[in-house]
């Protein structure tokens, strides 16, 4: 399952994912990376074990009698219905968490052109705290030079891109913070598809990119 992944989640992201304190879009990109990376999956599961140990060590607070009888009602009455979640068939590009968000396979992605051959599809999230989008970048195309007001996470799903921080292929995730200024360029050999998550607008340099920004809806 794990191929050669060289760029992983940070400890901060792993802990925050396990603790359940991340915006939905960030949870999505973490879950997608873990779907491709056994190393980070193991790191998350060991942090979950830490969460279990924290719960085990916490002081117990009193629970009412009604709480237990309510729980017994729930298990006896079968008033329980597991939420029906559709299971989409495997897709060579989109791991399961992304199939859930696009409602199917890569063919079902609702791409919108944003200029220079680049296409994007914003994925619906409910909390509005961060934005998740799929990006399609034609082979050899550069995303304009930009900085970040917040965090930008980019996970490669197909093809590859390079910037000052290195070479990123399927499964690799780039964690770019405020101080990073970069021009990612898609590998010449293949079109590149990425999942990108931002928690604040990007800052583009130069006229054309600035014009392009409204179309990017970031």
């Amino acid at each position: 399952m794990t191929q050669d992944i060289n760029h992983h989640l940070t400890d901060d992201l792993i802990m925050a994912y396990s603790a359940g304190i991340l915006p939905e879009a960030v949870n999505l990109i973490v879950a997608t990376h873990i779907s491709l990376c056994d190393e980070c999956r193991a790191a998350v599961e060991s942090h979950d074990a830490l969460g279990g140990a924290v719960i085990e060590n916490t002081e117990a607070v009193e629970v009412s009698e009604a709480c237990l009888s309510g729980a017994l009602d729930l298990i006896r009455n079968g008033a329980w219905s597991a939420p029906e979640t559709p299971v989409y068939k495997d897709d060579p590009v989109l791991p399961a968490p992304l199939r859930d968000y696009v409602g199917g396979s890569l063919d079902d992605v609702n791409w919108r052109p944003v200029g220079m051959g680049v296409k994007q599809a914003i994925l619906p999230t409910e909390d509005g705290e961060a934005t998740a989008r799929l990006l399609f970048i034609p082979a050899g195309t550069a995303i304009p030079d930009h900085g970040h007001k917040g965090m930008e996470l980019t996970l490669v799903l197909k093809g590859a891109f390079s910037d000052d921080d290195g070479y990123f292929a399927r499964g690799d995730i780039e964690v770019a913070h405020e101080d990073v200024h970069h021009t990612p360029v898609a590998d010449i050999s293949e079109d590149c598809i990425c999942l990108a998550v931002t928690d604040a607008p990007l800052q583009f340099k130069g006229l054309i990119p600035r014009l392009a920004q409204p179309f990017l809806k970031i």
Binding site: E24, L28, A49, G51, G52, P95, P97
Partner: peptide, 30 residues
Amino acid sequence: ASVSTWIFTIARNKKIDVLRKHKRPEPEDL
């Protein structure tokens, strides 16, 4: 997972659902 770890993950997901008001995307099953 230990039972306390497993229960922690169920409680954590319930917390996200109820307090943060969104579903937690889960990784693809192995």
